[in-house]
Simulated scan of single mutants.
Amino acid sequence: MNLNHINLVVKDVDTAVNLFEKHLGFNLIVNRNSKMAVMENGNNFALVIWGQVLNNEENVPVYPKNFHVGFYQENEEAVWKVYENLKAEVGLQLESKPQKIRNTFGFYFLFENLMMEISVNPFTDGIV
């Protein structure tokens, strides 16, 4: 069984699409009036960006404590590259510089209230 898609609820669909496209390797399939977008990453996985407006709410969505989405990078150099690129994005909260976390190397950042992790896959030997 393969994971088909995940649905992330955000306030600003267009800004989320830009983030996932520009920094996280996703391609836009469709953007429906800036209310909902579908993206793919070339691995038979879709990301649905669901605008909070479709929930008849205007506020920034709140996710449960410790909920986050993680993205693996090939090695520490790739993690640093993503970090440096994200530093220039307005509206993101970078929690710290890349560092050893658990048994890998990476960092966390917030987009709206959604926490994301960028790290090296700890199950490969990409850790230096």
Results as ranks from 00 to 15, higher is better:
residue 98 P to V: 12
residue 99 Q to S: 14
residue 16 A to G: 09
residue 54 L to N: 14
residue 123 F to M: 14
residue 72 Y to N: 10
residue 4 N to I: 05
residue 65 K to P: 07
residue 53 V to T: 12
residue 75 N to I: 00
residue 4 N to D: 04
residue 103 N to M: 07
residue 71 F to A: 08
residue 50 W to E: 02
residue 112 E to P: 05
residue 69 V to H: 09
residue 112 E to K: 10
residue 40 E to T: 12
residue 78 A to P: 11
residue 101 I to Y: 02
residue 37 A to E: 00
residue 102 R to D: 12
residue 43 N to K: 15
residue 107 F to W: 08
residue 20 F to M: 09
residue 62 V to M: 05
residue 78 A to N: 11
residue 118 I to L: 12
residue 15 T to V: 14
residue 42 G to Y: 04
residue 120 V to H: 00
residue 52 Q to F: 04
residue 125 D to N: 15
residue 60 V to T: 13
residue 70 G to E: 03
residue 90 V to S: 11
residue 50 W to V: 00
residue 98 P to K: 04
residue 56 N to S: 14
residue 109 F to Y: 06
residue 12 D to G: 00
residue 88 A to D: 07
residue 67 F to W: 10
residue 71 F to R: 12
residue 13 V to N: 02
residue 34 S to V: 05
residue 110 L to G: 08
residue 103 N to P: 02
residue 118 I to H: 05
residue 82 V to T: 15
residue 88 A to P: 05
residue 6 I to S: 07
residue 116 M to S: 10
residue 117 E to L: 15
residue 128 V to K: 15
residue 2 N to L: 13
residue 119 S to D: 11
residue 40 E to G: 08
residue 114 L to C: 09
residue 41 N to L: 10
residue 52 Q to A: 02
residue 79 V to A: 01
residue 93 Q to G: 00
residue 67 F to Q: 00
residue 108 Y to L: 04
residue 52 Q to R: 14
residue 49 I to D: 05
residue 11 K to N: 03
residue 118 I to F: 03
residue 53 V to M: 08
residue 114 L to D: 08
residue 37 A to D: 04
residue 17 V to I: 13
residue 119 S to I: 13
residue 77 E to W: 08
residue 25 G to S: 07
residue 112 E to T: 06
residue 120 V to T: 08
residue 113 N to I: 04
residue 2 N to Q: 15
residue 75 N to C: 12
residue 66 N to H: 09
residue 35 K to Y: 01
residue 25 G to D: 01
residue 80 W to T: 02
residue 126 G to E: 03
residue 68 H to S: 12
residue 85 N to C: 13
residue 102 R to T: 14
residue 115 M to H: 00
residue 125 D to R: 15
residue 13 V to H: 03
residue 39 M to C: 10
residue 37 A to H: 10
residue 72 Y to D: 08
residue 115 M to R: 11
residue 92 L to V: 00
residue 7 N to T: 08
residue 54 L to F: 10
residue 56 N to G: 12
residue 105 F to Q: 07
residue 1 M to D: 12
residue 126 G to N: 12
residue 101 I to V: 15
residue 32 R to T: 02
residue 119 S to M: 15
residue 76 E to T: 11
residue 58 E to R: 15
residue 34 S to A: 07
residue 3 L to N: 01
residue 79 V to Q: 06
residue 73 Q to Y: 05
residue 95 E to G: 03
residue 65 K to V: 13
residue 124 T to L: 06
residue 126 G to H: 11
residue 90 V to Q: 02
residue 1 M to W: 02
residue 87 K to G: 10
residue 7 N to L: 01
residue 80 W to L: 11
residue 1 M to F: 02
residue 105 F to K: 06
residue 13 V to F: 05
residue 78 A to C: 12
residue 105 F to L: 07
residue 50 W to H: 07
residue 40 E to W: 00
residue 5 H to V: 07
residue 127 I to Q: 11
residue 32 R to V: 06
residue 76 E to V: 07
residue 61 P to C: 12
residue 73 Q to E: 03
residue 39 M to S: 04
residue 118 I to N: 11
residue 90 V to W: 02
residue 33 N to F: 13
residue 37 A to C: 01
residue 46 A to N: 08
residue 12 D to V: 03
residue 110 L to V: 09
residue 96 S to Y: 03
residue 42 G to A: 05
residue 85 N to A: 15
residue 31 N to T: 02
residue 125 D to Y: 14
residue 74 E to P: 14
residue 85 N to Q: 15
residue 3 L to A: 10
residue 91 G to H: 05
residue 67 F to P: 06
residue 83 Y to K: 09
residue 60 V to H: 05
